[in-house]
Design a binder for these strands. Structure first.
Length: 613
RNA sequence: UGUCCGAUGGUGUAAUGGUAGCACAGAGGUCUUUGGAGCCUUUAGUCUAGGUUCGAAUCCUAGUCGGACAGCCA
């Protein structure tokens, strides 16, 4: 039926929206499916948008269709080019290698095409043809660009005129306050505007003069003439156009009247030939208006239909653009790409890969139930993804010196270490070993709790890839702090040695003190201390003061050349990635070595240790 | 006291009138030169009350609880 793309690794998702798509295709209502992802460029994309992107592009991919990237930019006072650029970057990043052939873009500068269908006038702007099977070249085809609702201002204006001509819209002189008052309340009908019966010719003239800029902001609006007594407040003569003498990031000063969301969105969908317009639950109440506008205009092609699903709520974080913006502006985080934020740029900088986000989106499903998703689901998806591809390395976060008293002071060995036990093709590397080492401070306990099987006085542990050592002596400094551990190595216990197979309970990571490379490591924790920070009251009161911990770690030497594009697992510690932005800002050889911890390893010991004795 | 939408283990999600399944989380075990990963086992669910039906998570009615909606935001 469709020229199906490569099948998904797992079975394709099933949900009520995909059911509708399947049924529409089976019934022959559409030849191909066209969805759209319509962000307003007034902020950065977050993981909630990722859910929507994966849904819309996923459907395009599964059904051999297309998903248009469209900026819903009808409010010049809130939108900026910075956001347009970040959104494009984030979308390409998320769908890259997965659905990019289904990304609907249009020829640069191409306006909607005026055509005649069965003698009826029409406007249409389809996406450029799907690219050939080969993956698109690095960077964007320069001849293509995303869609913009603001590109349709001329057509939208024409449709508004049509509504006026049909007696279905009027220019209203009520102030914003009065408009509110006349609207009534959900449980109380509104009353009609005194301007509702304005003659068509006068409406036409006034609307034209609104467009020409003859009236100041807020003095007049264009309203649909529907039903002020409707139980649905959105049908009580909703505003279609408002006056805003403001420069628009995309259309400059060409317009001083701007269409409202409800008027622009359904018609933008129609113009682009969208078949399924998928949005979040809060627009459910708007659907009658979406349909009303389309049904009362002369539109010869099949009409798009709106479907709503529940937005993503994730535990211990916030998704509101307004609140994210507040954190950025008030300096609670370092920027939109702060790795603690659920923004796509933040997650990317933290080291999360798009593959993980796509699996996450697949796992949480699509419903109309307003759910709170456990962060553990995200964390699981991130770990699974990283576990498969991360290069294993040895690094010590909080160093404790160990001296091997029976190991020659002038000797250095290069030991073989496995890069990824999950992937033999990742090969091995050499790690230097010598008399003086660092181990993790918390891997030694003078008074070990029950079931602690790391190093203790007189105890033995395996040093990964190296020897079994025994702790002979604890050396203290003047203040009574542990200065170093003096240990003896079982020199026959190295891989291949006579005592190599001796069983010791614990295996520790380590680095050679003389060879270790210092680096800044940033450990991130959840941004908030409660599952629903914005449930009530001031969400900032729940900010986690320990969401970022910065320390200087000691790394095995190979990490000196770590690539920001790769992912690493510091053994027994977690997944880390070199901070790309810091790296980019650094000057050549002086470029600082900074690592972000994407996420820790699952820690069953922490759970065990937390159990009441 | 308005309209619309929703409700399945702790969490999230399947089952489209025919054996309530999966994932996450939890518990136990196994393996382990990562207390990671893997493998095995396991706890736990259809909001309530009626009705239709041979048979209801599913259809109907009423109720309960939850959410969205009163921007010249999207």
């Amino acid at each position: 039926m469709t020229n199906a793309p490569a099948p998904a690794a797992a079975s394709p998702p099933s949900d009520f929206i995909r059911d509708v798509v399947t049924a529409d295709l089976a019934a022959g209502r559409h030849q191909t499916i066209v969805t759209r992802f319509p962000p307003e460029p007034n902020g950065y994309l977050h993981i909630g948008h990722a859910k929507s992107i994966c849904l819309n592009f996923g459907i395009a991919r599964e059904f051999g269709g297309r998903c248009n990237l469209r900026f819903d930019d009808t409010n010049p006072t809130k939108e900026e080019t910075e956001y347009v650029e970040s959104i494009l970057t984030d979308v390409r990043w998320l769908i890259g290698g997965w659905a990019d052939p289904h990304l609907g873009l249009k020829p640069k500068g191409q306006p909607p095409i005026a055509q005649t269908l069965n003698g009826r006038p029409d406007f249409y702007l389809g996406a450029a043809p799907l690219p050939p099977d080969s993956a698109p070249a690095e960077g964007e085809a320069p001849s293509l660009e995303p869609f913009h609702a603001s590109d349709y201002f001329p057509q939208l204006y024409a449709y508004a005129v049509q509504l006026i001509e049909r007696g279905l819209a009027y220019v209203c002189d009520l102030s914003a306050d009065d408009t509110d008052r006349y609207r009534g309340a959900p449980d109380r009908p509104g009353q009609e505007s005194p301007f509702r019966k304005r003659p068509i010719a006068e409406n036409l003239d006034l609307f034209e003069r609104m467009k020409r800029g003859e009236f100041p902001d807020g003095t007049r609006t264009l309203r649909a003439k529907i039903d002020m007594a409707s139980p649905n407040v959105w049908m009580r003569d909703p505003v279609l156009y408002r006056i805003r003498h403001a420069e628009h990031h995309h259309t400059g000063n060409a317009w001083c009247i701007y269409p409202m969301y409800d008027f622009a969105h359904c018609l933008s969908d129609y113009l682009e030939g969208i078949t399924h317009s998928i949005c979040t639950l809060e627009f459910e109440v708007h659907r009658p208006l979406y349909d009303w506008i389309l049904e009362h205009l002369d539109l010869p092609r099949p009409l798009p239909h709106q479907y709503e699903f529940a937005r993503l709520n994730l535990g211990y974080t916030i998704m509101s653009k307004r609140k994210l913006m507040q954190l950025v502006r008030e300096g609670d985080v370092a920027g939109w790409d702060d790795p603690r934020l659920p923004t796509l740029s933040g997650l990317r900088r933290r080291g999360v890969r798009p593959e993980a986000l796509r699996h996450f989106a697949y796992n949480i499903g699509i419903t109309k139930y307003n759910a709170l998703t456990d962060v553990a689901v995200l964390e699981k998806a991130v770990r699974d993804d990283l576990n498969a591809i991360a290069l294993r390395r040895l690094a010590v976060l909080r160093p404790l010196k160990v001296v091997l008293t029976n190991y020659p002071a002038d000797q250095t060995e290069e030991l073989d270490a496995v890069n990824n036990p999950e992937d033999s093709a990742a090969g091995t590397r050499r790690v230097p070993f010598s008399r003086e080492l660092f181990i993790e401070r918390e891997d030694f306990a003078e008074q070990p709790p029950p079931k602690f099987f790391r190093l203790r006085p007189g105890g033995e542990v395996r040093l990964k890839y190296a020897y079994i050592i025994r702790c002979d002596e604890v050396v203290y400094d003047d203040s009574g702090q542990i200065l170093e551990l003096r240990c003896t190595a079982d020199l026959g216990s190295k891989t291949g040695g006579p005592t190599a197979t001796r069983k010791v309970k614990g295996t520790l990571h380590w680095v050679s003190a003389a060879h270790a490379v210092p680096a800044e490591v940033r450990l991130y924790d959840r941004l908030f201390t409660v599952p629903e920070p914005d449930a009530a009251g001031d969400f900032k009161a729940h900010l986690n003061p320990h969401s970022l911990e910065t320390l200087t770690a000691r790394l095995e030497p190979s990490l000196k050349d770590a690539c920001p594009k790769l992912r690493y697992q510091f053994e027994r510690l977690g997944y880390f990635t070199r901070d790309a932005d810091t790296n980019a800002a650094g000057a050549g050889a002086a470029s600082p070595l900074v690592f972000n911890r994407t996420i820790g390893l699952k820690d069953t010991w922490a759970k065990e240790a937390a159990k009441p004795a």
